[in-house]
Design a protein around this nucleic acid. Structure first.
Lengths: 330, 330
DNA sequence: AAATGAAATGTAAACGTTTACATTTTCTAT
DNA sequence: ATAGAAAATGTAAACGTTTACATTTCATTT
């Protein structure tokens, strides 16, 4: 494996000059540049990034940490990160935590060790204090799903408002008995639940029967079954994810309900499934690409400006996509 | 940021001894070890991996390159890679090419530059010659979707046989007019098409109307519509992906066909969607976790044994999951 | 032809580790 | 007490770059 020294020898110059060519410095004469290029070609030379990064003390790599790639919601978010990063010469790599704190720690260590310049967390599974201690030392941004009280930039939507809007949507259709499928230990779910209850309260409804799932189809199915059996008078349901909402539709159908005629369902995420499924799912959409893009911008700002006064949090607009799974109450 | 020198000074030892502690060498007395540990703690020291990797000329990182994370088929494959890698102290990171050759080259450069030890390609989009030249110099494995004629280990299924089996499945149900939704420029699709035709030929059927999609739902929908309009006598269809197969079901329904009563559909991938959709989809399942796991094993073998005589290719068993979208012809 | 300034190139010291080899210290057996 | 072995520690040279600074070369002006 050829090194810069080999190239320099072959071209009859110093390593400094080779380095200058490698990095596009102006002050190299055309003929030496040619000679060096030729030597690089002949030796099939590739600069060793370990040496380079050690010297520069940066890598140009940023990590995106997410629980797994099975949730297609993240696909567009990640795309926004990648493209925005690439525009500023950062390479984005994905790390799946599988919701395992030890895996998450391992990846954070890559940043500690300087194998990556920073990290965007999509759904951290670490204790707030531990995360806080990391964030105070290294560039971190939280995107979409975040842990409150940790001092990082956050890019997300107003989840409380999203929950409020979902409930409003159902209330305006005349529904007065509305349940929720939430997710335990997920901040966005907590906020949406709060928002949902606020909307119900405005209509004088105190009760919002809630069952918890864990974002899997099966958990959504089970939650909906339980909800409908315990509260047969429910006419509508809001689930904090499309997968669970789709499962809820099926569960309702299996219990003899017709969707949307006798039972309405609204989800959250606007993944492809919500469009494919029959009846198609009314859901809350987020500006996924923009979320990712903004998160990456925040991260790069942090990496490049050592100085980070106060962290700005960005909350973007969501919209409700009305489809076939919701209807006015008879 | 503290370095090993700072730690050494504080503990009153040489950097060599600190390094020994860091790397768990036996020959350090307990009391110096304690002193060093204390110093590390006090200085909040983290070893700089750039220095370490430069010296060792390895990183412990392996890359997995895939088109995007929107296809949930890959989730389990990746999990197999990650866990098998982790068991041997390799950290797996995901790189999305977005089917862009330049992005793929950028990631391959991380291996050239020694920022990663090797790479698993899931669906490369590079010309065979270019890929071949890379593979002859660096550790590479192809998994699942691969480019033929490139000299790497391959871990996949026998796609020709899968196509044959899918067609057989329909033929045994009595279907004699069978179409296909394939994907252009995808080796697995070509093989499945070949296998499908071989099965039809055994029944004396020369024709297999085929339309091409690009793995999106919309393309599958359009392909199925075209197929059914041009060949109204078709009674069954095999699509090389579940997403396109589900789209085909909907397209058939929209054209007034009833699935499976008057039209059968079989897909490929066994993603969650195929189970959720109504009617649920008969499909070809692959041992996804095992595919990923075996691919990682091959890669690590390549990284650790400089000597790589001949590359072994592993083809695993697939199975057909019979569900509601297929039925015997009336 | 000399003086000047700009352009091109070279020298050598970093960057933070690891590790072969050398040296010192400690222990054991006599 | 001492030789010798074993254990612990230190020294210094790598690993492959980049870059501040120094030097040389070249063109331009007088």
């Amino acid at each position: 494996m050829a090194t810069i020294v080999d190239v320099a020898k072959r071209a009859g110059v110093s390593t400094a000059t080779v380095s200058r060519v490698l990095n596009g410095s102006a002050n190299v004469s055309d003929k030496t540049k040619e000679r060096i290029m030729a030597a690089i070609e002949e030796l099939n030379y590739n600069p060793n990034a370990l040496g380079r990064n050690l010297r520069r003390m940066r890598t140009g790599l940023v990590l995106v940490m997410l629980p797994s790639i099975s949730n297609s919601f993240f696909s567009q978010v990640v795309k926004g990160m990648e493209q925005t990063g690439a525009a500023q010469s950062y390479t984005t790599m994905l790390c799946t935590t599988r919701s395992n704190p030890d895996r998450e720690r391992m990846f954070l260590n890559l940043v500690r060790n300087r194998q990556a310049d920073g990290v965007i967390l999509i759904s951290s599974c670490l204790p707030a204090e531990e995360l806080q201690s990391f964030c105070s030392q290294y560039p971190v941004v939280q995107c979409s799903e975040f842990i409150p009280g940790v001092d990082t930039p956050v890019v997300s939507i107003d989840n409380e408002q999203a929950g409020y809007d979902a409930a409003q949507y159902l209330l305006k259709l005349g529904h007065r008995h509305i349940g929720m499928i939430a997710a335990r230990g997920t901040h966005s779910s907590d906020l949406r639940l709060t928002g949902c209850r606020r909307a119900l309260a405005e209509y004088g409804i105190a009760d919002c029967p809630t069952v918890y799932g864990n974002f899997t189809y099966q958990s959504g199915y089970d939650a909906a079954q339980q909800l409908l059996q315990e509260q047969p008078n429910l006419t509508a349901l809001f689930a904090v994810s499309d997968v669970m909402a789709c499962a809820a539709i099926r569960a309702a159908q299996d219990l003899g309900r017709r969707v949307p005629e006798t039972f309405s369902v609204i989800g959250c995420d606007n993944i492809m499934l919500s469009y494919i499924v029959h009846p198609s799912l009314t859901t809350i959409a987020q500006p996924r690409y923009q979320l990712g893009s903004a998160a990456m911008q925040q991260l790069i700002a942090q990496i490049e400006n050592e100085t980070q006064e106060s962290h700005n949090c960005i909350f973007m607009e969501h919209t409700i996509i009305g489809r076939e799974s919701t209807a006015a109450i008879l």
